[in-house]
Structures are given as C-alpha cells and as structure tokens.
Design a protein around this nucleic acid. Structure first.
Length: 651
RNA sequence: GCCCCCGUAGCUCAGCUGGAUAGAGCAACUGACUUCUAAUCAGUAGGUCGCAGGUUCGAAUCCUGCCGGGGGUGCCA
C-alpha cells in the first residue's frame, strides 16, 4: 500500500461522518505541490466548509482531530484557508523503504481487483511499408500492456493486422501487370512494396485527374463568393457586420484550402505526366482503381489465383514486419488480423439484421445511431464488408473467446469518430458490460509542423528511422567515450538510440501531436531516455567503486538516514513509484510514468552531487546512501523496462 | 453544414478530479570537473496560460461566446 492510499484510507472513515459519499473529498488528497507544504495535502476542507456551512478551517481541525495519523505522519498542519498539510514520519519512510528494498517489485503491490484486458495496437497494413505513424501505436500500446501486467492485470496483446484489405488487391494487380521478377526473386518484400507504391501512384493519378475539374469549379465558386461578400454594402448593424466578416473569412480560407488542394493535385499529375513511360502506363491502365477493387473482391470471393498469391505474399510480409518488432523487442500474444475474421462477417450482419438494428439505405446495410448523422455501414452496396464489420466481429470474438473486461484500441486520433460509432453499435448489440476504450494519440509531425514526411514527400520508413537513431546514438557515445569497445558501442547505440526513440513517443502526452526531432529525441540532457539511463549507469559506477555487497544489503537493510534534505526527497519519491503506475493507468497515459522517472532521475542527480557515498561520514550513512542508490537504480530500470526501454551498466 | 482536438516562455512540451508563487527541457547568459561517470549540477533571464465574459473562497483547468490552427464527416482502413 502506498502512502497516498494509506492516507486516504485513514481519512475515509472521518469523511464518511461528514458526507454520504467521501469519494470526491478523498480525491482531493494528493502529493503536495511544494515541499514546504509537506509530502501530501488534503484540500477537501474548503469545499466541505461550503457544503456544510461551516468555516473550512474548523472542518480541517475536526478532520485532523478525528483522523489518527500518528503511524504515518510526523507533522500535520492546517494552513491558509483550510489546507491540511501532511508530512510522513521517518519511521514510516524507513519501514516502507526497507520493505521496498527487499522486494523484487519494489514495494508495488499487485491490484486487488485484477481485470482481463485486450490491448490492440500496432496493427499495420502488411504489404504496405510501415512508417513513422505506426511506431506511436506500437510503442504506446506495448508500454500500456506492460504496465497493466505489472499492476497485476491479465493482458492479451493483439496485433490486428491489416492483411485482407484493398492493398492486397492493389498488389495483386501490380504483380499481374508490373512485376520485376528478378527483383522479386532477390528481395520479394521490397518488390511488393514497390508494386504497392507504383499502383497507388497510377490510381492517385487517375482519381486526381477525375477530381481536378470539380475542385477547380469549387475554387471558382469560392472565389466568386469571396468577391460577392466583399462587394456587400456595409450594414449599420454591428451584429450583421460581424456575421458578414466571419463569412468572408470563412470563404477566404475555403478558397485558400482549395488552391492548396489544386496545387497538390497538379503536382500529382505532373509526377506521372513528366515521365513518358509512366504516362503511357497510366493511359493503358485507366481503369486501375476499379480493377484493383475487383482483384480484392476476387480474393475475398476465394478466387484461386488471387488466394494463392495472397498465401504466398502474406508470410513474407509478416516476416518483414517481424524484423521491426524484433529490433524493438516487441512480442504479441495474438496476431489475429482482418483475414482471421473474414468468414465471420456475414453472420455479424445477419445477427444485426435479425435484432432489427439495421436499415437499408442506398443499397447498403447500415446501422443508424443517435448523435451521428452518418450511419455505420456494415455491408456495402456491392455486398462487400468493411472494417467496421471486421471490428464488430472482433469484439464478438474477443468476448466469446477471451471474456474480456476491457479492450483498448491504441489507434490514431483521426479514427475517433469510427470508434465512437463502433462502441455505440457494440453497446446496442449487447456488449455493454465490457470497457471499450479508444486510446487515441496524435500525429507525428515534421519540423515544419506538417505530418512527418521525407523531402520527396514519402512517408518515412521505419527501418531507416531505427537505423538513424542507432547511428546518432553511436556518434554521441563515441564522443563521450572515445575508448569505448566496439561491442559496447554497438550495444549502447541500440539501447540508447532505440530507447530515445521510444521515450520521445512515450513522454509526450499521447493525445497531442508531437514534432519528431532526432536531436531532441537523442538529447543527452533533459527529459530523455538517455538521462534516465545515465542515472542508472552512475549508480552502477558507485556500486563498483565502493565494492558494496548489494545482495547482502538488500537482504538486511540498515536504517535510512536523511542527513541532507535531498536524501529524504529522493526517498519519498522512490516510494511513490506505485502511485505513478496507478495514475498512469487511470487514462492509460505513459507520459505520467515518464515524468515520474524523470523527476526521480533529477532528484538522484542532485543527490549524486550533494551526497558522496564513498566518503560518507559514517558506515551507517554510507550504507543508507547505497540503499537509496540501489533503490533508485532498480526503480529506473523497472520503470524503463515497463516502457520497453533497456539500461546499461556503463555509459 | 455537423462533429472532434488544439492554442501555456524565443523553440519543443508538462500541468492529474478546480488549490497555495504556472513548471521542465532546449536555446541565451554566469558559475562548478586533482572528486562515486561533467551524458552532470548550481544560478540568471524569459509569461496578458489566444481574447472576452461567467460559475466560486479559489480558474491554465469547468461553462458560454469570439479569434486562430488542425483533423474527421455513408459504402478506404
């Protein structure tokens, strides 16, 4: 039990005497914002004063008198309008530190209400090269799964691969028409990737060409509207004038957007038209979009040729993706891709129909929902199913086979509307006992503030990204440590480079977009993986230099001594590890854990500066400090491992 | 048109369920290596938390309106 929950349990009974439901008041007990206010503070007296019509300071005094905190706190003070400031006693700290140091789990107890989770993350489209966008889902999902497990929950990780979608139709079409067979023989996946991009380009060319006149007409209309609005006489009415101005601004920005769209379209067209060979192919394959869809449809219908190609391609693609996962050290319990659910989709629609949830509209079978203008389409006019259908089948399958308490979908925030609808339909369908959560995350941007792309406009491949991270880390490691051995350098490059990459993703609030920046990511300072890893390595250095017998110390720790304030601060922080984990899991936010680890490492760096272990003034103080060091290192190592990041003994 | 997200220091970002003087890191400037790892630490400077109202003991946080940016929006995933 951590300090926070222990304090809360002490307050609980006293608060229950004042209000029917103390939950809200208990929520107002939290770590102190400033060390001068002690370690924890209870802020509930002010609102309770209002509610009960008594002065808040009186309420605070009553609470303090009623709650027995002697076993926990050395000091309890009422401050300001009625803040209750709590300072943990050294005896309490000592007990818990000693327990933590003896414990493999560092005193973090497993939850007493374990749940069964499916964490659905990564989910790349196979055969399409993975790019930087996939790494966020992969890294965040993996961290959440690991933390849930550490907290005592049962977790099934599932990589819901896109292995049955239209991209296969495109690749099959490409294979049939544009295959470079020698390239396919030597590097099959690379060739498939090329075919995908090639078909995509021709498809984009035709759809853009078809769309362009419409867009141009829209632009003309938009420009006319701008002129019209500009020409409108000024009205005397303030409100009307304001409305006019707003309409004008809207029209101007609409026209601007259309102009941008047209420029993009023209660039797309030019890319194909300037190459005579490409232009020729484009002309020969005017119906490519439709044809690719037909290849997909044929695959789904069990066409022998296409199915054989799919069966040939899929293992190769999966192996290729697996290379990335191996490098990132990510393992899934299940990899039930879209194709796995293929034969269950018709039944999903049938069942929804039977229950009367569906309605036909324009030939498609739809589920209409309150709060949404557009329905969720579960079967297309041409009879094909959609990802919505697959997602519903997946929910059903997981409930029936895993009996989950919760499913987390670690997916891009752009799909939030899809998930809103999906969860609403699932709820109607009867899956309303299970938690369904879209753990959304923002877009990875380039330094220009636009989605991260290469200079040529392609998305950035993941493999090159990992290489770059390692190379840069190696350079930095070499700079700091010119005599480093090759083995150690390679190891450091991997652990620091990939750790930095993961940490950059995890330490940003997942809901916000973030700017991808190698320099910052591998920064040797600041809130970075390197800083935390360095803290760990420094502890190992101390242990080496002092030749301490850590195993013996762990077995029978001595009393902790807090000679300097920083030692106590660090100790309190170390005991808050489990609070950080609890807090992270409230909204599945890895950055909470990152922050905690960063703060811990910061306190350690100060401790390192101020408190010599080797030259401590007494044996007992030296051992006390060694214990703090050991606990710090283990907290950092464990915390980082929950984030999928490793540490080094020497840096 | 409708829906969602965002706007905090020059830059990149934190800020939990409303709490005490809004925080980090980078960049800038000043210091600290005969010392357990300087991949570090100490310090200075930098703010109208987009704007305006409201709710209240208290608002970056909640509500309304406005301004600015992004995303999504019936048969792609």
């Amino acid at each position: 039990m951590n300090a926070l929950s222990e304090i809360k349990s002490h307050f609980s009974a006293a608060l229950a005497k004042l209000v029917d439901d103390p939950t809200q008041a208990l929520g107002m007990i939290r770590p102190a914002g400033d060390p001068k206010f002690g370690d924890y503070q209870a802020n509930c007296a002010m609102p309770l004063g209002k509610q009960l019509g008594k002065p808040p300071r009186d309420i605070a005094a009553d609470l303090v008198a009623d709650v027995s905190l002697d076993s926990l706190c050395s000091n309890v003070e009422i401050a300001g309008p009625g803040f209750i400031n709590l300072t943990l006693s050294d005896a309490w700290l000592n007990n818990h530190l000693a327990a933590a140091i003896k414990d493999d789990r560092l005193g973090v107890t497993a939850t007493d209400s374990p749940r069964k989770y499916v964490v659905d993350y990564s989910s790349p489209n196979v055969a399409k090269p993975m790019h930087v966008g996939h790494i966020r889902s992969t890294v965040i999902g993996d961290a959440i799964a690991k933390v849930l497990r550490f907290a005592g929950h049962e977790v099934i990780t599932d990589n819901h691969l896109g292995d049955w979608g239209t991209q296969f139709g495109m690749i099959i079409y490409g294979y049939k028409h544009f295959l470079d067979s020698s390239a396919f023989k030597t590097e099959p996946v690379k060739e498939l990737g090329r075919l995908y991009k090639f078909v995509r380009q021709i498809m984009d060319y035709h759809s853009t060409k078809k769309q362009l006149p419409t867009t141009q007409a829209e632009l003309v209309a938009a420009q006319q509207k701008v002129e019209q609005l500009k020409a409108l006489p000024e009205t005397g009415d303030k409100k009307a004038a304001k409305k006019q101005k707003k309409e004008l601004n809207n029209a101007i920005s609409a026209a601007k957007k259309l102009t941008g769209k047209i420029e993009d379209a023209q660039a797309t067209l030019q890319a194909t038209e300037t190459s005579p060979s490409l232009a020729k192919i484009a002309a020969q394959h005017a119906e490519i979009g439709n044809a690719a869809l037909l290849e997909t449809a044929a695959l789904h219908a069990g066409d022998e040729t296409n199915l054989a190609l799919w069966k040939q391609f899929l293992p190769m693609c999966r192996d290729d993706i697996q290379k990335i996962y191996s490098r990132l050290n990510i393992v899934f319990d299940k990899e039930l891709g879209e194709s796995f659910y293929h034969d269950q989709l018709a039944n999903v629609v049938k069942d929804l129909e039977a229950k009367g949830f569906t309605r036909e509209s324009d030939g498609a079978i739809c589920v209409f929902l309150d709060n949404h203008d557009a329905p969720m389409i579960v079967q297309k006019r041409d009879g094909a199913f959609l990802y919505a259908t697959t997602d519903l089948a997946t929910i059903k399958y997981r409930m029936e086979n895993f009996d989950t308490d919760a499913s987390l979908y670690v997916v891009d925030h752009r799909q939030s509307e899809h998930f809103n609808k999906l969860f609403d339909v699932a709820d109607k369908w009867g899956y309303n006992e299970t938690e369904l959560t879209h753990v959304s995350f923002g877009t990875v941007m380039g330094k220009d503030g636009k989605p991260f792309k290469t200079r040529s406009g392609d998305t950035v491949g993941l493999e090159g990204l990992l290489d770059e991270a390692e190379t840069r880390a190696a350079t930095i490691a070499k700079e700091n440590n010119p005599d480093i051995s090759d083995d150690l350098l390679a190891q450091a490059a991997k652990i620091v480079g990939l750790g930095g990459l993961k940490y950059a993703d995890l330490s940003h609030a997942r809901t916000s977009d973030y700017v991808f920046d190698y320099d910052k990511m591998l920064s040797v300072r600041g809130n970075s993986a390197t800083y935390l890893q360095y803290g760990y390595a420094r502890v190992q250095g101390i242990i080496r230099k002092t030749e301490a017998d850590i195993a013996a110390i762990r077995q029978s720790p001595v009393a902790f001594e807090f000679e300097q304030p920083i030692e106590r601060q660090l100790a309190v922080k170390l005991l808050q590890f489990s609070e950080a984990i609890d807090e992270m899991l409230v909204d599945y936010r890895p950055n909470i854990l990152c922050n905690y680890l960063f703060e811990t490492a910061q306190l350690f760096a100060k401790f390192f500066d101020q408190c010599s272990v080797k030259d401590a003034s007494s044996d007992s103080l030296r051992t006390s400090r060694l214990q703090l060091c050991d606990l710090t290192a283990r907290t950092l190592k464990t915390g980082l491992s929950l984030l999928g990041i490793e540490v080094l003994d020497k840096m």
